[in-house]
């Protein structure tokens, strides 16, 4: 029963991948390459590259890709469903308790410690993406300073219009994509 197998495999991926995207990669590889003969290592590398180029969480992208190869559209749906089921259940439970107990003093204390940490982690992810866009690497060493002026230009003008005119970020990303096509093909 291939659908059940898909479902259970991605259920495990969804349940045990804590910490988002890249933390899930080895877990996904184990399930779809090593344990089950669904993808070759090369195909797995391909889907990782595609997952980075397309929107959506890596685990979901992978579930769809594997599901469709193994069991068509229904396979993709089953795998995706398995992937999100555990976390949906867990976050709804946590959210329920959050709204019930957030006015308790101890919970307030916990939350007041978490808020700055969340901002810091978003900033850290943002800096990683910025460096990847401008220098081509997530961590920059002094020896490999190759600045991508075009990306820097897109970043700076994007940030400027966001700060100045408060426009919808989705439009900023769309125009950044169009600018990318123009700038990288002209220069």
């Amino acid at each position: 029963m291939i659908y059940l197998k898909l479902f259970l495999s991605f259920l495990q991926i969804g349940l045990f991948s804590i910490g988002g995207g890249y933390a899930a990669m080895p877990l996904i590889k184990e399930q779809v390459v090593d344990i089950n003969p669904w993808l070759t290592s090369m195909q797995f590398a391909d889907i990782m590259a595609i997952a980075e180029m397309t929107p959506g969480p890596i685990a979901i992208n992978c579930a769809t890709f594997v599901g469709i190869r193994v069991g068509g559209i229904l396979g993709a749906i089953v795998a995706t469903f398995g992937c999100i089921l555990p976390s949906c259940f867990i976050v709804i439970t946590l959210a329920h308790f959050y709204y019930k107990y957030r006015d308790l003093k101890s919970v307030k204390g916990v939350l007041s410690g978490l808020r700055p940490a969340v901002i810091a982690m978003i900033a850290s992810a943002g800096l990683g993406i910025f460096l990847l866009a401008v220098f081509g690497e997530k961590t920059v060493s002094a020896g490999s300073l190759h600045v991508d002026i075009r990306a820097l230009l897109i970043f700076a003008s994007g940030l400027f219009v966001l700060r100045k005119f408060k426009i919808n970020p989705i439009y900023v990303m769309l125009s950044a994509g169009v600018c990318g096509m123009i700038l990288y093909s002209v220069f």
Partner: peptide
């Protein structure tokens, strides 16, 4: 090319919110 541009755009969006 579009993806490279979008990556820079994504960085700008995150910086703005941070």
């Amino acid at each position: 090319m579009a993806m490279k541009g979008m990556l820079a755009g994504v960085a700008a969006v995150i910086f703005d919110v941070v």
